[in-house]
C-alpha cells in the first residue's frame, strides 16, 4: 500500500499534459483530412488563398463540377467499386472460412506441409506472380473485367484471412463438432451448419478488411481495368490527376472527399471491431 501511494498522490498535472499532447497530436494528424473537407467546400479560387479558415459560406460547386468532371458520373465509379468489393467480400468469406475450417479441424495427408505453404503465401510479394497472372487472365479474355480481382477471392488466395479463421476455429470447443459427428454429419455439413455460424465475428472482420482493402487496391484496378465505364473510385480519381493542372483542384478535392466517405463510414460503424481486429490479430491495416 505504502508503495502504491506515491502513484495515487501524484498531482493531476502529468495527466493534463498528457491530455493536451494527445489532443494536439490528434488534431495535427487529422488536420490534412479536415483541410481536405474544408477546401472542397470553398470556391475554386479561394482554395489556396485562405488555407486554414472555415469555408464560409460553404459552396457545393466543386462537388457538382467533380461529379461529372471525368466524362462519367462519379456515382458510376462508386457503384462499380461497391460491386467489386461486395463480390470480393462474398468470395473471401465463403472460401477462406471453408479452407480455414479444413486446416483447423480435419486430418489429411500433407496437412502440415500445405499449412506451411499457406502461411508462406501470406508473406509472398505479389510482384512475383504478377506478370504470369496478367498473361493468364489476358489469355482468358478477363482483362477489362473484374474477374482477375474477384476470382482469386473465391480461391482463398488471401491466405491471411484463412489464417485468421484457422485461429478462430481453434478457439471453438471441439465438443461442438464432435456432437455433429455423433449426428452423422459429414465435414461439409459440419462446417456449414455448425462452424460457419459460430465464425461470425471472424467473418465480419474478414468482410470489413476485404471491403476496405479491395476498395483501395489501386494497383490491380489500374492494370486490369481500361474502359472508363468500368472505372472504380481510385481510377476515377486518377482521371483528375492525369487531365488537370491546378485548374480543377476543386473538383479533384471534392471527389477525394467522396472517395473517402465509404471508408470513413465503415470506420465509424465498425470502429471498435476494426481496431480490435488489428490489435488481436496483427492485421496490417
Amino acid at each position: 500500500m505504502s508503495v502504491a501511494a506515491p502513484h495515487h498522490r501524484r498531482p493531476a498535472r502529468p495527466e493534463t499534459v498528457r491530455q493536451v499532447v494527445l489532443f494536439v497530436l490528434a488534431l495535427a494528424l487529422i488536420y490534412p483530412l479536415l483541410w481536405l473537407v474544408f477546401a472542397s467546400l470553398r470556391p475554386e479560387a479561394l482554395i489556396f488563398s485562405d488555407p486554414t479558415g472555415l469555408p464560409l459560406p460553404p459552396t457545393g460547386e466543386n462537388y457538382i463540377k467533380g461529379w461529372t468532371g471525368t466524362g462519367q458520373s462519379f456515382g458510376l465509379y462508386i457503384v462499380n467499386s461497391i460491386i467489386l468489393c461486395g463480390v470480393s467480400v462474398i468470395g473471401n468469406v465463403l472460401a477462406c472460412s471453408m479452407v480455414g475450417y479444413v486446416f483447423a479441424r480435419l486430418d489429411f495427408p500433407f496437412r502440415k506441409t500445405l499449412f506451411a505453404l499457406m502461411l508462406a503465401t501470406i508473406m509472398l510479394p505479389h510482384q512475383v506472380t504478377l506478370i504470369p497472372q496478367y498473361t493468364l487472365f489476358r489469355e482468358l479474355g478477363w482483362v477489362d473485367t473484374y474477374l482477375p480481382m474477384i476470382v482469386p477471392k473465391f480461391l482463398a488466395v488471401d491466405a491471411f484471412f484463412v489464417f485468421l479463421i484457422v485461429q478462430f476455429v481453434r478457439s471453438i470447443p471441439r465438443e461442438l463438432d464432435e456432437a455433429a459427428l455423433i449426428d452423422g454429419c459429414g465435414p461439409f455439413a459440419t462446417y456449414w451448419r455448425i462452424i460457419f455460424p459460430l465464425l461470425l465475428p471472424a467473418l465480419v472482420t474478414t468482410a470489413i478488411f476485404t471491403f476496405l482493402w479491395t476498395y483501395d487496391d489501386f494497383f490491380s484496378q489500374l492494370i486490369y481495368i481500361t474502359s472508363p465505364e468500368k472505372f472504380t473510385v481510385p481510377l476515377g480519381l486518377r482521371v483528375f490527376l492525369d487531365t488537370t493542372g491546378e485548374s480543377a483542384y476543386g473538383a479533384m478535392l471534392a471527389m477525394s472527399v467522396v472517395a473517402l466517405v465509404p471508408a470513413v463510414a465503415f470506420f465509424l460503424i465498425f470502429q471498435k471491431r476494426i481496431v480490435d481486429g488489428v490489435a488481436t490479430s496483427g492485421l496490417k491495416g
Binding site: 494528424l29 483530412l33 473510385v233 472527399v257 473517402l260 470506420f267 481496431v275 488489428v278
Partner: peptide, 20 residues
Amino acid sequence: YRAIFYLPSLLGGSVATAIV
C-alpha cells in the same frame, strides 16, 4: 484517441489520401 490515431492507417494507402 486509439480510433483517431488508427484512422490514417486505414485511409493512408488510398489514392484520395495521396492526392491530399
